[in-house]
């Protein structure tokens, strides 16, 4: 690729990304009422998205079922349990991440 093609490639990638973020706001401008179905959908979606994002973090797992996969799952469960128990974001993330680092480096 030459410089012009590189700039175009980066520009197109940026435009594609912007399209996915702006499209709903363009289709439903703020001065008009949000259609009932979309409004309900917007209320239904977020918990599903948060669940989807957790799975997204584990997207490389099915293709690489090795010891590291086991560590990632174990550390994930530890994070969740600590959070159910203490409900302290920093504590849960800290303990979860430390347990992953320990598992990874000492086993």
């Amino acid at each position: 690729m030459n410089l012009a093609e590189e700039i175009l490639t980066i520009g197109i990638a940026a435009c594609g990304t912007m399209l996915t973020r702006f499209l709903p706001f363009i289709l439903i401008p703020s001065n008009k009422p949000i259609p009932a179905f979309i409004q309900q959908l917007g209320k239904f979606l977020p918990p599903a998205i948060l669940g989807m994002l957790v799975i997204y973090c584990y997207k490389d797992l099915p293709a690489n079922l090795n010891l590291n996969a086991l560590f990632e799952i174990t550390a994930g469960i530890i994070t969740a349990l600590v959070h159910f128990w203490k409900k302290n974001m920093f504590l849960s993330i800290g303990i979860g991440t430390c347990s992953y680092i320990l598992l990874l480096n000492f086993f």
Partner: peptide
């Protein structure tokens, strides 16, 4: 880098604690 995974897990658990109905959360997972 596990920090990011831990963050999303924490946000998801918060959501589970906060909500009365888990249909959407479970559906997503």
């Amino acid at each position: 880098s596990f920090v990011m995974t831990a963050l999303f897990i924490v946000l998801f658990v918060d959501q589970l604690i906060r909500e009365n109905n888990h249909v959407s959360s479970l559906c997503g997972v």
